[in-house]
Design a protein around this nucleic acid. Structure first.
Lengths: 202, 202
DNA sequence: AATTATTAACTGCCCATTCAGTAAATAGCG
DNA sequence: CGCTATTTACTGAATGGGCAGTTAATAATT
């Protein structure tokens, strides 16, 4: 048995969320219980409820964390690239990259997407996240279009298209990937997206 | 209390699956129990286990049914269209249509997609389904490409692209749709797909 | 002394599944 | 046709386990 640690909320809460995340990957949403998380972390189940007064809170906290992670990952690097043409290339490379697709375990992401169908709060969080990404792309595309780096009629639709294709790619990887490396088809998808963005298709 | 009906397996089994489907839409995978399905159908829980010896079987039976429905819906109509150019248009119209996207309740579909991450059998069923669709498109595209209706370098990748975009569209509808009609963005997506298929982009 | 971290014991609920039983339909047979 | 045996449809009651959540107690920190 692990000795009592007597840590504080600052360290315990993330620890519990990490444990939750791990159990979620192994067991899925249906198979994950407070008891199992506790066992995984070698702590008492009540401790989890001490920090997150119920399971709903726990879930929302993890989703919040995941979305933060998603938003922060790599994104800020682009501010440093002053050359817009370079920035456009780097942006597209990132969005169609394996690393980007694995910012969060796809199984876990998927599970929460699914929950958003029935849980208003989860739905809002994810809608916000996707809108945030779309709006980011939109703002960038405004610049690129003005400068002739891309040629589009509707920057917003262009941004939505890229997000749509990006999400479709997750599907492809899971159901049609068939052992082939993610990058293979991601490259194809990216090329099509680039072509659409550069030929006034959208 | 409803009078005993003494129906047989042929009628009861689909009845139970339909009830399961309904409860699933309302309650989600986590909230759906044999007890709730029984209550919804005004039958005894044991009757469900009498027909499907456990919950796993029940789930697999519903997935089977859904996939059959998905495969049969609309698909066979195309055999009748002899003019290939017309058939291509009809095919693309179908795949990017609202009706097609709602062949099965998206929430339910999504739930099973999610389960495929952790359940080998479910995973296989869905992989088969997607491969089936892709292969169907592939065979069609071979014909269209030969006849100059489309211009692609790689018919298989083209088919995979269309499936990918189609699935991405589900995402878009759920997270970025924002009350706008499905057709709005589906039309945009279709146009991009058509452009990609007709200009050797893929 | 007060707050915070942690465990412990317990509650009541719901769950899938089992087993045993009853009632109706059907099939086999004279 | 009519009687019985078997199968099939269905209910009831019970079991055992896991679940989220409560409340109270203890141990460490501040």
């Amino acid at each position: 048995m692990a000795a009592r640690k007597n840590q504080n909320a600052e360290t315990r809460k993330p620890e519990i969320l990490e444990g939750y995340y791990r159990v979620l990957i192994e067991e899925g949403l249906e198979g994950t219980s407070i008891g199992k998380i506790a066992k995984h972390l070698n702590i008492h189940p009540s401790l989890i409820l001490h920090y997150f007064k119920n399971k709903d809170n726990l879930r929302l906290a993890l989703i919040d964390l995941m979305i933060c992670k998603f938003k922060s990952t790599n994104m800020l690097n682009f501010k440093s690239l002053d050359d817009h043409s370079e920035r456009f290339t780097a942006l597209m490379d990132l969005i169609f990259s394996y690393e980007w697709s694995r910012t969060v375990d796809p199984g876990v992401h998927f599970g929460f997407y699914y929950q958003s169908f029935r849980d208003e709060k989860v739905s809002e969080l994810f809608c916000d996240m996707f809108r945030w990404l779309r709006d980011y792309l939109y703002e960038e595309f405004l610049v690129y279009n003005r400068e002739g780096i891309i040629q589009v009629n509707d920057e917003l639709k262009a941004a939505e298209f890229v997000v749509t294709l990006m999400e479709g790619l997750e599907f492809h990887a899971h159901f049609l990937g068939q052992g082939r490396p993610f990058e293979d088809f991601a490259e194809t998808a990216k090329k099509i997206a680039l072509s659409a963005l550069q030929n006034k298709t959208v």
